[in-house]
Amino acid sequence: MSVDLSYYLILAAVLFTIGLIGLLVRRNVLVMLMCVELMLNASNLTFVAFASKLKDVGGQADVFFVLVVAAAEVVVGLAIIVSIYRKRLGATADDLSSLKG
């Protein structure tokens, strides 16, 4: 008998919260992207836990798609950071204020 589902859900919720708080608190855009990854991982964990509980492979397939979305997000996010850095010499969220009126 494996560990009960609720423990996985609580762990995933804690991980998601850590990512959320990190996203709100940190100013470094790279670290903010990493925090998004943490949140995506928490959702992955939830998916797989439910897949295991309900004996349904659909949850695992969803994780597959989340992975692809995460990869796409990171690629575009890092490209944005690099292109900002070329103009601004800074990669923190405070440097992204050129649209301010």
Partner: peptide
């Protein structure tokens, strides 16, 4: 490792290959 624990071996390995092997390396 939790994925392995939940008997999703394939996803565990894919997680390592894509996340640890590609995404974080990109970071």
């Amino acid at each position: 490792v939790l994925f392995v624990e939940l008997s999703a071996d394939f996803l565990a390995v894919v997680q390592v290959i894509i996340y640890a092997g590609a995404i974080v390396v990109l970071f």
